[in-house]
């Protein structure tokens, strides 16, 4: 059982790529005080975990009744990322995406912490390893993500305003690129 759990953990960790996502996340929370930032991380982690569990148990039903497929979520997630890229590059302090803890769910919870790739991976792991193993893997990887995001905010304090701007620009390009790629992959699956 340990083997599959670790397998699942690694698969999820790679696809979630928290270290790679942090630069996208930091500009969004730069304007918050510590309390609000931590609150955001709590909410995001909770939401992402619930989202994965919901898809784990109900993925089939969701896809069937709403007549959507993973590819559609991929395109939608891609659009969100591209818009985020715009935000991060051109946005100042007061842009369309509100900089309060309501961002915890989107985009931090999804697609940062638990994106369409994670959802797909969860479904695959379910089929390969079974429910219990997958749930444990999810719990482990979300716990790790939680701490990474929580401690990332310490970087905010050291980075300073300019450091964050640089990160934001790089992150913007990365987000937009990932977004477009996600959309392309999604479209490929649809057409």
């Amino acid at each position: 059982m340990i083997g599959p759990v670790i397998e699942g953990f690694i698969a999820l960790f790679v696809i979630m790529d928290p270290l790679g996502v942090i630069p996208l996340y930091l500009p969004l929370v730069s304007g918050m005080d510590d309390k609000e930032r931590n609150h955001t991380v709590y909410l995001a982690t909770g939401f992402a975990t619930v989202l994965l569990i919901v898809f784990l148990f109900g993925g089939g039903l969701i896809f069937e009744y709403l007549q959507i497929r993973l590819e559609h979520i991929m395109v939608a997630g891609g659009v969100v990322l591209v818009l985020l890229g715009f935000e991060a590059m051109f946005g100042g302090e007061g842009t369309a995406m509100k900089r309060d803890s309501s961002i915890a769910i989107v985009p931090v919870g999804m697609p940062f912490m638990a994106g369409p790739g994670s959802i797909a991976t969860v479904l695959l792991l379910m089929a390969a390893n079974g429910t219990v193993v997958t749930i444990i893997s999810i719990a482990l990887v979300m716990a790790v993500q939680f701490f990474i995001y929580l401690w990332a905010t310490k970087i905010v304090r050291f980075a300073g305003k300019n450091g964050l701007k640089v990160m934001a620009n790089i992150a913007a390009v990365a987000a937009a690129s990932f977004g477009i790629q996600l959309m392309i992959n999604g479209f490929r699956g649809i057409f």
Binding site: L66, H72, A76, F191
Partner: peptide, 24 residues
């Protein structure tokens, strides 16, 4: 709030479905 955002995500996926169904 979580429900609104989660359903917004599903709406976006449904929207993509509508658009691509139309294209197809």
């Amino acid at each position: 709030n979580a429900w609104i955002r989660l359903s917004a995500l599903f709406f976006a996926a449904i929207a993509v479905n509508l658009i691509t169904k139309g294209i197809l």
